[in-house]
Write a protein that binds this DNA or RNA. Structure first.
Lengths: 224, 224
DNA sequence: CCAAAAGTGTTATGTTTACACCCATGT
DNA sequence: ACATGGGTGTAAACATAACACTTTTGG
């Protein structure tokens, strides 16, 4: 390979992360406000350069840590963005990821040396974002819907267990439609997605609810 | 972005194509024999550098044309390969694709300035390949199985139409299992994947078979 | 009229949907 | 005792799987 051929030079890569949470039944995504040009003062997904000694997920996790202080996020790859003129500086390949976090358990850093604000936005009320981030976010929302019906991605939200009514609300929020709670329970329990912990949890004035956890190895099929 | 940071430099991209065909009921993949080091004289998938002024599929089509003379192939993206030490020369990101061609209609160029041979190999009898191509091919075979049950990827093999028994054999070959031909017909016809042309085709000594074509816009679901 | 392959229909089985009642708890 | 939400069962509708006979053609 002729490394000095200009067609091989000036190629870079970066990562773009759509980090979702469920806040009182509303699906929200984490946006940060840029302090630098281009797109100064605009909201953007959590994104940044990938170094040439990193795996793409390593770069994604590092950028998330740098710009929000979030750690230990499980990321799912969404797609490659290969439009040629995404950056005026050099050819920039983009790799898009999804993460899911529990809003109760995280503490977002509001300011960093590259960001002046950070906040959660209802995915149905997204402003104009920097770069091509609106398009990337829409793809990620579709992928999120796919993943909750075909994988155990919610496991990261409930590492120690959950009740069926609890995740029922999450499914309804993300899929944006009602699901009959009796049939939902049956599907979840027969899908192989979850297992019983034989524990229960008490909420005031209500019947105790059974606790389940997501399985690690789940069947390769549509689960819900 | 500090372009002189060595962590941003020396990044390249290339494409790796698994081009499949069905030869008398056997699923085969196109391999080429390398004339240059590394992996001189070993068989490999059809691969090569991506230039910084190309979309990833443009690069894939150009490489296929250069190394095999095949043109007008529809390609489907499979995955990113981001292992760090894939190339000793520089960080090399890989983009893997699937193509499907009709072996009756193509004429493979056996020799080019970078290849000394080209041939179709039964996917169950693949030799040791150059680089990480065995792993890439296995991922592509899985994706091919997914695509024939969830998309109209076979449309490229039958641009002018096909009979149900014809594609029935193709499905059995790719999925590597028997499918009841009566239920197969019903599923195909009710899935929304194909439409009737009201034409028939005659084979010697057999009842005429109806001709169908694949639809362009197909439902987003498991079809077979 | 026979061989070869195309085309069709029915029954049984399994899965999904729709829907209504009982249960355990805190106040 | 009652309000709140958790838990369960059943019948109808639908989809899938198993399976056998009839049709058209060329020789």
């Amino acid at each position: 390979m002729e490394l000095n051929n200009p067609l091989y030079k000036n190629m870079g890569a970066h990562v773009i992360n759509s980090i979702f949470t469920i806040d009182k039944g509303i699906v929200k995504v984490l946006l940060i406000k840029r302090t630098n040009n281009p797109y100064k003062n605009m909201w953007a997904l959590v994104s940044g350069a990938m170094y040439n000694n990193e795996l793409i997920t390593t770069a994604a996790k590092r950028e998330i840590k740098e710009k929000t202080n979030l750690e230990n996020i499980n990321l799912e790859f969404v797609n490659v963005i290969d439009d040629i003129d995404r950056s005026p500086l050099l050819r920039m390949l983009g790799f898009s990821f999804i993460g899911l976090v529990d809003i109760e358990k995280v503490n977002i850093m509001k300011e960093t040396n590259k960001t002046s604000d950070a906040d959660w936005f209802d995915i149905n009320k997204i402003p104009n974002l920097a770069y091509d981030h609106n398009k990337i976010l829409n793809n990620s929302i579709d992928k999120l819907k796919y993943l909750i019906t075909n994988s155990n991605i919610l496991k990261t939200l409930y590492p120690t267990g959950f009740t069926i009514p609890e995740i029922h609300k999450v499914y309804e929020s993300i899929l944006n439609k009602e699901l009959d709670r009796r049939n939902f329970r049956k599907k979840i329990l027969t899908s192989g997605l979850v297992k019983d912990t034989n524990q229960t949890i008490n909420f005031k004035g209500k019947k105790p609810a059974k606790l389940y956890i997501f399985n690690d190895n789940i069947p390769d099929k549509k689960l819900i």
